[in-house]
Nucleic acid binder design. Structure first.
Lengths: 146, 146
DNA sequence: CTAGTGAATTTACAACTGTAAACGGAGGAA
DNA sequence: TTCCTCCGTTTACAGTTGTAAATTCACTAG
């Protein structure tokens, strides 16, 4: 994983996600276009978007390149890295014993393509080799019997 | 899903997760024991834990029951509900097209038991019936070609 | 009755978030 | 040359989060 998300350094807030998704999709973008695109979904003033941009640059998630008098914004990490990083971060604070259940819930609720499903099945089949019979709960300091 | 997490009402912060996990594991608990357990893992002062407790009560994630002069704390939602709710919330702001990939990453990184894997395989097999060939990206306001 | 203890409540304060107004500089229209 | 407009920078302000000290309340040991 690249710098930015590496050590839980940069959390991406919900508002920032909205913005980042557009940057990722466009590859690189000027603030004007970004603001227009965002305003097609959210009631944000120009200022608000500019503040978010500045914060994302400070967090190291975006970099700028000056072109004439505007700045071109680009992401420093890929969308996939950010998504995986965030998902892993979330799972980090779930009870070890219950992560499987949560994954199951996600599989139930997320729309998946045939291809996604095939890949997941393959991964699971491999994982089944050597998967443990049980996983210990790690909710309590000592050991936990729940 | 119960009241609390229903409409993205109550976000659980990382610190709060630590605390909640202990409450869930113990079922119900007095602040004293909770503080001692937490301090076995984290450098938190008594005060800090009490503040977190108060905030969780305000958020409606914990309720108290007075016993003599102490309060007994209990969770208002189950750990599973909270975990699933949080996971779904996170997935809500990911690009629809790329959720499968993120799930795959999680399956790769999370420790799963034989039983978890079996259940996931079953769910996937069912889901494969009628799963779409592709899912549209929803990153841009109009439609997105990424 | 008086001080010490344990528990809860109040107050604190900086960093981060959501949201935005105000200000400033530089290029283009008049 | 002068002002308008576009864009970036500064400042703002309330709410949340991490972290905790200070204060109060009530009981128990002297």
């Amino acid at each position: 994983m690249s710098e930015a998300l590496q050590n839980n350094i940069a959390e991406i807030t919900p508002s920032e996600w909205e913005l980042m998704r557009i940057v990722w999709t466009k590859g690189e973008i000027f603030s004007r276009e970004l603001i227009d695109l965002l305003q097609a979904k959210r009631q944000w003033s120009d200022s608000t978007v500019k503040t978010l941009l500045r914060r994302l640059v400070n967090k190291g998630l975006l970099v700028t390149e000056k072109q004439e008098r505007r700045f071109l914004y680009k992401a420093t990490i890929s969308e996939t890295e950010a998504m995986n990083g965030s998902a892993e971060q979330l799972f980090d604070h779930l009870c070890a014993m219950k992560k499987g259940k949560t994954l199951l819930d996600l599989v139930d609720h997320v729309t998946l393509t045939q291809d996604d499903i095939a890949k997941l099945q393959k991964a699971l089949a491999e994982k089944a080799q050597g998967a443990p019979e049980s996983v210990q709960c790690d909710c309590l300091p000592g050991d936990c019997h729940c």
